[in-house]
């Protein structure tokens, strides 16, 4: 890129994604939103927007369930707590929930883990297909990165979301893909070894999504609303209760560990 390239883009957007022709029509990835796509469910439109591909009703049902099964209206959970704190501080619901979604892009949970999990599965499957040994691959990954995204859980060992999600995937005929089988094989290695880690929901979701053909970036964007359904209840309850009454902290709750009290000397 150089200034000449930038000059060519001034004031004008060339796009394949879509546009709104106010008063006449809206185009969404080359299709008329109100004609060609008028019967699309929201989730279908959302993943079509991300991938440009169509998915079967069974696949879409599974995609919705992956969001729903991890939507917990528990205001203690860090991202949900942001939405709830916005309520108790009498901020707007939109701000609170938008911030809670932004916070969901974390390193030890949420989007930061999700994109690593699907990338590892895609890489591992290719290496195994190329003749690699899965156990060695797992050991190398653990040595290099200290953890495998999608295995282990910061709070508890068991993951209550796996069973219902697998049950639904089986019912929909989507539980036996190559990536899901790979994910459970990795779990066997991790349980059998000294690591003693089980697969968590992030691992299963990534494997199911990889079997649906999602790339890491598509999966990352598809998961954006994953925790969303649990957030408005947290905001609503906090907003309906006495202001400031959610998780109040007394001065004594601040456990100070810094320098002792001292006098300030302005820099000369």
């Amino acid at each position: 890129m150089n200034p000449q390239t930038l000059l060519e883009h001034v004031g004008h957007l060339k796009t394949q994604m879509g546009a709104c022709f106010v008063g006449s029509r809206a185009v969404f990835r080359g299709h008329d939103l109100h004609a060609d796509l008028k019967d699309m469910e929201w989730v279908e439109l959302y993943v079509f927007g991300i991938t440009g591909r169509r998915f079967s009703p069974e696949q879409l049902r599974l995609m919705q369930a992956i969001w729903a099964h991890t939507s917990y209206p528990d205001a203690r959970i860090w991202n949900n707590r942001v939405a709830a704190l916005a309520g108790t501080a009498r901020s707007t619901g939109n701000l609170g929930i938008a911030a809670a979604l932004a916070v969901s892009e974390a390193t030890i949970y949420g989007r930061g883990i999700d994109i690593r999990a699907i990338e590892f599965f895609i890489r591992a499957k290719k290496q195994v297909e190329d003749g690699g040994n899965l156990a060695e691959l797992v050991a190398t990954e653990l040595k290099q990165k200290r953890s495998i995204a999608g295995y282990g859980r910061p709070i508890a060992a068991a993951d209550e979301r796996i069973k219902p999600t697998m049950a639904l995937a089986e019912k929909l005929g989507l539980a036996d893909g190559a990536y899901v089988r790979l994910a459970f094989s990795i779990e066997e290695i991790l349980i059998g070894g000294r690591w003693r880690q089980r697969m968590n929901y992030g691992g299963l979701s990534a494997a199911l999504a990889a079997d649906l053909g999602l790339t890491p970036q598509e999966y990352y964007l598809y998961l954006f609303p994953a925790f969303l359904a649990g957030m408005p209840p947290c905001y609503i309850e906090a907003e309906q209760r006495e202001e400031g009454s959610l998780f109040p902290l007394t001065c004594a709750h601040i456990l100070y560990e810094g320098p002792a009290k001292r006098r300030w000397h302005p820099a000369g």
Partner: peptide, 24 residues
């Protein structure tokens, strides 16, 4: 239930544990 910090310390007012008399 508490927040560990080496940044901030507060002392409460005598009549209200939620109001800081001094902040360091």
């Amino acid at each position: 239930m508490g927040i560990h910090t080496r940044i901030w310390q507060e002392e409460p007012e005598a009549d209200n544990p939620f109001a800081a008399r001094a902040a360091y």
